[in-house]
């Protein structure tokens, strides 16, 4: 079984990059078995078809604008995910929504998908997370590792 942890977002627009930051933290702090691949997807498009098509299960990490205060953690599962990504005005030529739609067409969509996200506070040009969103990274990471464990993966924290 292959599991993909995919962090997406633009690192140059502060909280927009939180998905990538959480993916980085996962790789930095945990020892993961070979069947788990962690990818910093940035704002890429069709390059992501390969890892997504190869995955049986996928955890997506992203900033999510929702009707909730900044820093609120949100989640979404299964079939809601492609529909969810269709709702946003993708600034990308062929962004994640199109990649997921393409994977649907080719029958390559992972069997199980979950999104963990956080409502951003700042989308200003800059490479730092706002303190509100930076404060949620550990909690998001906890959801990711818990899900990996629920999927039968042994996740070990690296010794300091």
């Amino acid at each position: 079984m292959t599991i993909l942890v995919l962090g997406v977002g633009n690192l140059l627009l502060s909280d927009e990059g939180v998905g990538v930051r959480v993916a980085e933290a996962l790789e930095a702090r945990y020892v993961l078995p070979v069947e788990v691949s962690v990818i910093d997807g940035g704002t890429a498009g069709m390059e992501l078809l390969e890892p997504i098509a190869n995955a049986d299960r996928m955890i997506l990490l992203d900033a999510v604008t929702a009707d909730h205060p900044p820093g609120t953690l949100v989640t979404m599962e299964g079939e809601d995910l492609p529909a969810f990504f269709r709702t946003r005005l993708s600034p990308h030529q062929l962004g994640l929504p199109e990649v997921l739609a393409t994977a649907t067409l080719t029958g390559d969509l992972p069997n199980e998908m979950v999104l963990f996200g956080v409502v951003p506070e700042s989308l200003k040009t800059g490479m730092e997370l706002s303190s509100t969103v930076a404060g949620t990274v550990d909690e998001l990471l906890g959801h990711v590792t818990a899900r990996l464990e629920a999927w039968g993966v042994t996740v070990t924290e690296k010794s300091a």
């Binding site: 627009l13 927009e16 929702a66 990504f85 946003r88 989308l123």
Partner: peptide, 14 residues
């Protein structure tokens, strides 16, 4: 800019 916006055309559950 790349933020996901669930309050769009389709109804999805967050």
């Amino acid at each position: 800019i790349h933020v996901a916006d669930p309050d769009g055309r389709e109804v999805v559950k967050v």
